[in-house]
Computed example of a mutant assay.
Amino acid sequence: MRKIAFVFPGQGAQYVGMGKEFVENFKIANDVFEKASNSLGYDMKKLCFEGPEEELKKTENTQPAILTASIASYEVLKEHGIEPKIVAGLSLGEFSALVASKVMAFEDAVRVVKARGKYMQEEVPIGVGTMAAFIGLDREKVIEACNRASEFGVVEPANFNSPIQIVISGEVKAVEKAVKIGKELGAKKAKILKVSAPFHSSMLYGAGEKLAKELHKIELNDFIYPVVANVTADYYDSISSVNELLVRQVSNSVLWEDSVRKMILDGVNTFVEVGPGKALSGFIKRISRDVQILNVEDMTSLEKALKALA
Rank of each mutant, 00 (worst) to 15 (best):
M1E: 07
K3T: 11
I4H: 05
F6I: 00
F8P: 00
P9A: 04
Q11T: 11
A13N: 02
M18H: 03
G19H: 08
K20L: 03
E21N: 06
F22H: 08
E24S: 08
N25V: 01
N25Y: 10
K35H: 02
K35M: 09
N38D: 12
S39M: 07
K46V: 01
K46Y: 11
C48Q: 05
E53V: 06
K57C: 05
K57T: 10
K58A: 08
E75I: 00
V76E: 02
L77M: 15
L77D: 01
E83S: 15
P84A: 10
P84E: 10
P84L: 09
P84M: 10
G89K: 00
L90Q: 13
F95K: 08
F95M: 10
S96M: 06
V99Q: 08
K102P: 13
M104Y: 15
F106S: 00
A109W: 02
V112G: 08
R116V: 01
Y119D: 07
Q121W: 06
P125Y: 07
V128W: 07
V128Q: 13
G129V: 01
T130Y: 14
M131C: 12
F134H: 09
I135Y: 14
D138N: 15
R139Q: 14
R139F: 15
K141P: 14
N147Q: 13
N147G: 12
V154S: 06
V155F: 13
P163N: 05
I164V: 12
Q165I: 05
V167A: 08
V167I: 12
G170C: 12
K173Y: 02
A174T: 05
E176A: 03
K177C: 06
K180D: 15
K183T: 04
L185N: 05
A187R: 00
A197Q: 09
A197Y: 09
P198G: 09
H200S: 06
G206S: 15
G208V: 07
K210L: 12
L211V: 04
L211C: 03
L211Y: 03
K213L: 13
E214V: 00
L215I: 03
H216Q: 14
K217A: 10
K217L: 12
I218K: 02
N221W: 09
I224C: 15
V228L: 04
A229H: 02
A233G: 11
Y235M: 01
D237T: 07
D237W: 11
D237L: 08
D237N: 14
I239F: 11
S240N: 15
S240G: 12
N243E: 15
E244N: 13
V247E: 05
R248Y: 13
Q249T: 01
V250N: 05
V250S: 08
S253L: 07
W256E: 00
D258M: 09
R261S: 07
K262C: 06
K262W: 01
I264D: 04
T270V: 14
V272F: 12
V272W: 10
V272G: 00
E273I: 04
P276Q: 04
A279Y: 03
L280R: 06
L280Y: 01
G282W: 13
G282I: 03
F283L: 13
K285Q: 13
R286S: 15
D290A: 08
V291P: 05
Q292P: 03
N295E: 13
N295F: 15
M299K: 11
M299W: 07
T300L: 12
T300Y: 14
E303A: 13
K307M: 08
A308I: 04
L309F: 04
L309M: 02
